[in-house]
Simulated scan of single mutants.
Amino acid sequence: MIEWLKNKAYWNLDELVTYLEREFGGIYKSKQSYYEIFDRAKISRNKNQKTNTKFDKELVKKKTE
């Protein structure tokens, strides 16, 4: 399971739940258990953004003037 996670380019909680249910026949009651699996695989469950979605060029320009 850890190797499966490490070989993926993108991680999704719902996909992990489905994988564990299909491969091992069970699911956890708590989402925290899935987060612990991500932690064991040394995978951050937070999404990174390439750009700041709240960035406002005009507001920055006003502040720097």
Rank of each mutant, 00 (worst) to 15 (best):
K63R: 07
Q32R: 14
I2F: 06
E21T: 11
K6T: 15
V60S: 05
N7C: 06
N12M: 05
Y34H: 02
Y19I: 00
W11Q: 02
K57D: 13
L59I: 14
N12A: 00
Y19C: 00
L20H: 02
N12T: 00
E58V: 11
I43F: 00
F55Y: 15
Y19P: 00
K47R: 15
D14R: 02
K50Y: 11
E3M: 14
Q49C: 06
R45C: 03
E21K: 02
D14F: 07
N12L: 02
Q49V: 06
F38H: 08
T18I: 08
K42D: 09
K62G: 08
A41F: 01
A41G: 06
K50T: 04
R40T: 11
S33K: 15
D56Q: 01
Y35Q: 04
F55A: 02
E23H: 08
F38R: 04
L59R: 15
W4I: 04
R40A: 12
Y28S: 02
F55P: 00
R45G: 01
K31Q: 14
A9P: 13
K61H: 12
V60F: 13
F55V: 03
Y35G: 07
Y28T: 01
K62W: 11
K54I: 03
K61Y: 05
E65W: 08
N52F: 04
N52A: 08
G26I: 09
L13C: 08
A41E: 00
K63L: 14
Q32N: 12
Y34D: 03
K62T: 14
K47T: 03
D14V: 06
K63E: 08
K29E: 14
Q32T: 09
D39L: 13
I43A: 00
W11N: 00
I2R: 13
S30L: 09
K50L: 15
E3R: 10
K57N: 13
E3G: 14
Y35S: 04
E23V: 12
Y28E: 01
K31S: 10
V17F: 10
S33C: 11
S44W: 07
K31G: 12
K50E: 01
T64Y: 03
V60D: 07
N52S: 03
L20R: 08
E21H: 03
K6P: 05
